[in-house]
């Protein structure tokens, strides 16, 4: 049975394709390695698949008491965002500390008295 695609599915599909392209560009620019590229290809490929064929999630939805496939995707998206946000927070703090230590050590080494 062929179902009509909803506007939100088309939007989600386009977004997934765009994100796949972004991941690919970063891979080409060597900002991410092969493993990360595969990981993100998996994430956005799965997102694209579930956005286009939401019915495959029906058995899971019933078990999790979630009304619609899109709701489940949003819940998962929020979880991923929260994880990435936390990772970013920790990473930035670490980088800040490193920079501060480096700058201070260089400053103290170059102390100049008149």
């Amino acid at each position: 049975m062929v179902e009509t695609l909803l506007g939100i599915q088309i939007l989600a599909g386009l977004f997934a394709c765009f994100m796949l392209y972004v991941a690919f560009v970063h891979f080409k620019q060597r900002n991410i390695d092969r493993f990360e590229m595969l990981f993100w290809a998996g994430v956005w490929g799965a997102f694209l698949y579930f956005a286009l064929f939401p019915r495959v999630l029906d058995p899971l939805l019933a078990r999790l008491f979630v009304a619609r496939s899109m709701d489940l995707l949003f819940i998962i998206a929020f979880m991923i965002l929260a994880y990435l946000g936390f990772q970013n927070h920790v990473g930035i703090k670490w980088v800040q500390r490193q920079i501060e230590t480096m700058v201070r050590s260089k400053t103290l080494k170059n102390a100049h008295q008149k």
Partner: peptide, 21 residues
Amino acid sequence: KKLTIPGIIWLRHQVNLGKGA
């Protein structure tokens, strides 16, 4: 600019780190 006032120790951060730093 380092002034010619005697007895001043000049330290310079290469980047802006903030007052606390």
